[in-house]
Design a protein around this nucleic acid. Sequence first.
DNA 1: GTAGGATGCTAAC
DNA 2: TTAGCCTCCTACG
Length: 270
Amino acid sequence: MPEGHTIHRLAADHNDAFADREVRVTSPQGKFSDSAALLDRRVLEEAEAHGKHLFLGFADLGWIHIHLGLFGKYTWGPAGAMPPPTDTVRLRLANATSYADLRGPTTCALITDAEKQAIHDRLGPDPLREGDDPDRAWRRLSRSRTSIAALLMDQKVVAGVGNVYRAEVLFRHGIDPYRAGRDLTRAEWDAIWADLVVLMREGVRNNRIDTVRPEHTPEAMGRPPRVDDHGGEVYVYRRTGLPCHICSTEVRIAEHAARNLFWCPRCQPA
DNA sequence: GTAGGATGCTAAC
DNA sequence: TTAGCCTCCTACG
């Protein structure tokens, strides 16, 4: 689930359901109990996202810093449908109308303003944050011998891009994932950034990742509709061995910097 | 029933 | 570069 669009959507959903009100804060699992006790029945002022980091602000008390990692997941619902707390729920927020359960996060910790600022400082620009500057990313990647595939996943370079957006945006721009960052042109980078802004905003809106252009949809191409179980329609992500939507070449997979990398060798030539 | 994998990241070597 | 962490779901017996 969790790339940047998921986290920004979670921030918006938290603002809708919980902001500016007192909230019950518990940790059925126990690992966040001390902080939960401190925050319980206080006002959750605002939720904010930067890349894959979620921050829940409690006035003078600080922020809950949440990172879902690979497995973290939220389940939501109306207060009336709140299930009994189970021992995998790290954090439960609840008020008269809604509840939100958090399971399996890499991070769920109460931090100070200064600690929050330090996290912002080490993250790169986020295509989903209004006013974030793609130049900062360009300055890093245009001097790097590292592959563009690895750079896009480096949260210090760009915040919020994960394995799906990485694979898909490189496909959409016909860029070989193994090209060094410094071999990209400024125009290529500007196009990638602009595309990430569009794709990820749509991801927030729909709460899933769709990257296939209208002219390549199954309907337009006369193919049977097929949605990957990650939830959206994509060109290459997890389509190993299947024909490329555009050129029918088999989509390839390789392990790259400990992550699965997917690409079409014909549409993204070296 | 169990193994393995997954949209992530970090500390330690 | 590798192991380790967190949980859930699927594939395979």
